[in-house]
Design a protein around this nucleic acid. Structure first.
Lengths: 200, 200
DNA sequence: TCAATACGGCACGTGCCGTGCCGCTAGGGT
DNA sequence: ACCCTAGCGGCACGGCACGTGCCGTATTGA
């Protein structure tokens, strides 16, 4: 096998990311040290520093390695139902233990480290956004969304409240809340708006 | 004067908060150390630790000490115009240098330190929210907002997109963006909604 | 067999942590 | 006018994690 070297290399990499997640879950990201991660992984510090140039980027890789499966959007013809399903799945992953605290810590780190912020956007936020935008575009073409509605803005308005709850007020993001956001955003705040169809 | 002792105490406190802001603006909150703050303030480390039990709480006090004047809502009878004015003012304060990076760092710290998160909510987020909710309530009573619209939710939907831009994508929050959010949220995403009045 | 590469282990200097201790000074009590 | 005391600045300490050298080793590919 010509890739023995590479596979050894990869196994170390995975061991380090696994150890980083373990330590972060135990003591919190704020108290996560490279030393502790290296020790936990049974690895020298050099082996960590050779792969990641900062604690934040290591943590980013570790958290994103949990990307079990993508959050691709179904298309049943009912955009509200499809959005609800995807948002519920995403929130279940990202806003609840054990991953909720880790994801929050990752976004927190992004506020201090521009590299982490850029990488988080490029590798997680943008792909997820593109996927949702595609679904919204299809909905607009089928007349489920007003033709002059800016879809990038629509994404912000749908995601923003969830992140606001996750990061600022830190109230739980329940299925009911997702439902309320969807209804409210589709219906609009003005009186006499056309109501959106309720959950069947 | 019987409060000389208290005034001496307060002058130290203010000097430390001022020094914390200076250092944070120079090297960033991530590299802000108590030692540097104490030195900058011409103060012993004890004098800092006696007042704040963590770096995050000191930073919170320092940033909130910039609360020049409250962001109270005007009531001209046009809720969209009033919200636009307040949101524009808030964004101008909180999303632009020099305070933008500091506010982002504060929210970032809140992701790691529950005490900071709780204090930030209690001392800044909740009062601001209450103020906006009062204005929204008045608008609902005057028929500018649909009578069955949850106003707490309305606040989340209006604020969320701004925070999403500030914290996640880190795109600039422009006046046009605020305008777009207001129009979109009032009109709703569904087709054939009653359009909200445009800026005069 | 041999050179090369990546590795684990160890040690180092540095910076900051949080906490003692010491001597001083400015105010307040009498 | 006296001292008493709380709060202070300065200093030093042990501890921890940083990031980086160095060394000996094991596994790999020539």
């Amino acid at each position: 096998m010509t890739d023995s070297r590479a596979s050894r290399h990869d196994s170390r990499t995975e061991a380090i990311m696994k150890a980083a997640l373990d330590v972060a879950l135990e003591v919190g990201y704020a108290r996560l040290s490279i030393e502790a991660v290296a020790t936990r992984a049974g690895v020298g510090k050099h082996t960590v520093y050779r792969r990641w140039c900062s604690r934040g980027l290591l943590f980013l890789d570790a958290v994103l390695s949990l990307n079990t499966e993508g959050l691709s959007h179904p298309d049943t013809g009912d955009v509200v139902a499809d959005l609800r399903e995807t948002m519920t799945k995403a929130v279940k992953l990202l806003a609840h233990p054990p991953w909720g605290p880790l994801y929050r810590a990752l976004i927190g780190e992004a506020q201090h480290d521009p590299e982490v912020a850029a990488a988080l956007n490029r590798r997680f936020i943008e792909p997820q956004t593109a996927d949702t935008l595609a679904r919204l575009k299809a909905a607009k073409e089928q007349g489920e969304i007003a033709p002059d509605f800016d879809l990038d803005l629509a994404f912000d308005i749908l995601s923003g409240p969830l992140y606001y709850r996750l990061l600022i007020t830190q109230q739980p993001v329940t299925d009911d809340y997702i439902d309320s956001v969807l209804r409210a955003v589709f219906a609009g705040m003005s009186p006499r708006s056309r109501p959106v169809r309720r959950r069947s």
